[in-house]
Design a protein around this nucleic acid. Sequence first.
DNA 1: CGAGTCCTTGACCTCGATCAAGCGGTGTGG
DNA 2: CCACACCGCTTGATCGAGGTCAAGGACTCG
Lengths: 244, 244
Amino acid sequence: MGVTPIHAIAPEHATHHGTPRCSACSLRAICMPPELTADEFARLDALICTTRPIRRGEALYRTGDTFQSIYAVRAGSFKTVVMHRDGREHVTGFQIAGDPLGLDGICAGKQNCDAIALEDSVVCIIPFAQLEAICREMKPLQHHIYQLMSGEIVRESRQMLLLGTMTAEQRVATFLLNLSKRFKARGFSSAEFHLRMTREEIGCFLGMKLETVSRMFSKFQREQLVQANGKMVRIVDPEGLAQV
Amino acid sequence: MGVTPIHAIAPEHATHHGTPRCSACSLRAICMPPELTADEFARLDALICTTRPIRRGEALYRTGDTFQSIYAVRAGSFKTVVMHRDGREHVTGFQIAGDPLGLDGICAGKQNCDAIALEDSVVCIIPFAQLEAICREMKPLQHHIYQLMSGEIVRESRQMLLLGTMTAEQRVATFLLNLSKRFKARGFSSAEFHLRMTREEIGCFLGMKLETVSRMFSKFQREQLVQANGKMVRIVDPEGLAQV
DNA sequence: CGAGTCCTTGACCTCGATCAAGCGGTGTGG
DNA sequence: CCACACCGCTTGATCGAGGTCAAGGACTCG
């Protein structure tokens, strides 16, 4: 069976690979500041004039690549992986449609992690130097970029809290509820979804081994909190899950 | 004995509390983009016209406070603490002279953590709305702020790697080497320094209990890697520490 | 249909948490 | 000025959550 992303872009946009338009994008509300004028959208459309398809398992960028653009996930999903010189790996995040990618590269002019597609995916390419130029003239967009980056900082500090203080059980519960919330924000079911990542990748994100992740799924199943069948997950009792 | 910060600002600046000047600040190289003209510095000095002293144990801001400004540590040191509704706490970072504070507040317009002074300290106050305005006109400063925020993202993802994959021993070693590097970058000794935080705060930052932190200090002492006497730390064998 | 991946489950072990005791330095009140 | 209380730190003994190792099952893909 081919890989068909559940969270796909609408077909009428998918055909416009050469000329995507933010002004017409279904992810506009997630990606973009709300109060842009038609004229401002036109300038954005001129900036973000290319998309790029990435096959499952391939890298959008790798650690050390020269930083030039940031990206927005248009369809599909990614993981970002940082690596220690001794080979230790850690997944720092999973990005789905509407999420930004590449913000870590601005700092040193080189990407600081690998971004790997979890399924066949498409990203919008946003040349950063040009984005900066437009931001100097478009206050709402400028502020939006600051918010985006600050949001990433907040997300990561929450993840540190999770890694630093929670039990394996609480981490997995938090992970599922977070995914659920994000799917809901994008108009998909918050109760039932398809995990695009393996147990090992989840474990690597949550700071535990894949066996432990599996055991927690089984435990939640037994306690009637979720129904998990391989990568299909159905959240039965979100409140119960939240107070694990 | 009073609390005398080792890493103090030079006396001639300490007296200028009402009118700090970036152009004359010893932390300029850490805080600011390198290539500003005199004119540009003048505009910055006009923006950052106030400092604020914070006593040991007091908060610069708390979670939920309305976000208006970002800050730069001018003297002293801070910890940032996030809290889960159930009371679980986690230290997300320690900030010393030259480090930024408050970037997490841009996202939601409210601060997302508590920033607590570890000793009597002074911060520079940078009103964010005005900073944004200046950034629209000063390209190097604009880029610097993006780099600052990206740097915070990178720092946090390194901390996630630490929390997710390292043993207690490796975490403490990494922590000491990181502090050492930062002190060195500010012109202080990289070999010997005074910890301003308690074992408990270190543990809370590294995802372990204070007893474990203490045991690791003792272990490193036995192995001749560091000499630790309460809060005074001397790094004897940085290479050895690095390959723990 | 067979090989490879991914997932689940069991048995055992280890690292770090927990509990507990004691020490040294500091600040405070008599 | 001393006694005492408190806080932060160290160290030992014990325990348990999660890691490790191993076996087998379910799916996918060539």
